[in-house]
Design a protein around this nucleic acid. Structure first.
Lengths: 154, 154
DNA sequence: TTCATTTGTAACCATTATAGTTACAAATGA
DNA sequence: TCATTTGTAACTATAATGGTTACAAATGAA
C-alpha cells in the first residue's frame, strides 16, 4: 500500500458534505462513512479549512459545511490543500564533486515539475460534484446488478 | 521528505551509465556518485534489469551497462521499472453500507488513473539522454558562474 | 588452479511517515 | 447548566524505506 491516503479521504469527505447540502455534518458521521476515527477526519478537515474549502461550527447542531458549490471545487484545489510533497521525490545529497552528481538535481527538477503539473492539470478537470455524481451513478449500476442477481434466483 | 527516491536515483544511475558509454560501471562507482551504499544501487539495478533496461557481468571488469542507446530510453519506462504504486493512493475499506462509501472507490479510480497517465505521459517526453545532456549543461553554466566569481576577485 | 573482483540477495537495524487512539480544553447552542 | 462538537496535543502500532553486514556465486586475471 502506498502512503498518504489523505487526498482520497478528502474527496470522500467532500462528496459527503456535498450530499448533505447546507446541513452541517459531524466528524462522527463522516468517520462512519470513511470507516476511521473522527480525529482522522478532523485532522484532514484542518487542512481543508485552512485553504478555505470548508467551514466548521462547534457545539450542538455543529459540524462541517462546504464554503462553495461543489461544482466550483476542483480536485486540484483539494489535492493542493492536503499534499505537502511532490509525487516524485528527489534523492538527497548526491556527490557534489561528481560531474553528474553535482548537477543531476537541477536536470531532474525540471522534469519532475512538468510531471507534477501534468498530473495536477488532470485533477483540475474534475470537481467534487463530478465525484459525487459518479459515485451515485456507480451506486445505481450496482443496484441494477443486484436486481439482476435476484432475478436469477426467481 | 517524501518516500521512495528510487526513480530519482534510477535516473542518476542511468545518466552515469550513459556517460560511461560501453564500459561497464561497478555498483561501487555509481554509489560514490549517488552517495549511498552499493547494495542500494544493486537493489535498484535488480528492477532495471528485470525490465531489460540494463545488463550486468560479475567478476573483474564486471559491472553494469545499458542495453540500449540512452536516447531510446524514456523516463516513463524507468519510472515503471521501479514504481510499484500509483502516485495517488486510494483509502481502504470505506463503509460498504453507505451510499457514498460503498462506491466512492469506483468514482475515484477513474480520476486517479487519468492523473497517473497524465504524469507518465509527461515523463515519456524525456529520455535518459536528455537528463544527461541537461546535467552537463547545468555543469557548464555553473562553471561559468564560478569563473565570474573569480573574475570579481581579480 | 588460485585469487581478487563483482554481482545477487538475504537479513537486520534505524528512521520516518502514517493512521489510529485517548484525552481534554474551548466553543456553542438547547 | 449541560450535552454536543470542534481543535489539538500526545502517544502507539504499523509499514516503508534506506543503509548496512554478510556471504554465496560468477567471472576473469595471474
Amino acid at each position: 500500500m502506498n502512503s498518504n491516503q489523505q487526498f482520497s479521504v478528502s474527496c470522500h469527505i467532500l462528496a459527503v458534505l456535498t450530499a448533505y447540502g447546507d446541513a452541517p455534518v459531524t466528524s462522527e458521521t463522516i468517520a462512519l462513512s470513511v470507516d476511521t476515527n473522527p480525529v482522522v477526519i478532523r485532522r484532514i478537515m484542518s487542512h481543508l479549512r485552512q485553504h478555505g474549502l470548508v467551514e466548521s461550527r462547534s457545539g450542538s447542531n455543529g459540524g462541517w459545511r462546504l464554503t462553495r458549490p461543489a461544482s466550483a471545487l476542483s480536485l486540484r484545489e483539494v489535492y493542493q490543500a492536503v499534499s505537502h510533497e511532490s509525487v516524485l521525490a528527489m534523492h538527497q545529497h548526491p556527490n557534489p564533486d561528481c560531474l553528474i552528481g553535482g548537477h543531476i538535481q537541477e536536470a531532474l527538477g525540471g522534469v519532475f515539475n512538468q510531471a507534477q503539473t501534468a498530473m495536477e492539470l488532470a485533477l483540475e478537470k474534475f470537481s467534487v460534484a463530478d465525484v459525487l455524481a459518479e459515485t451515485l451513478r456507480a451506486n445505481l449500476l450496482d443496484r441494477d446488478k443486484r436486481l439482476d442477481m435476484s432475478d436469477l434466483q426467481n
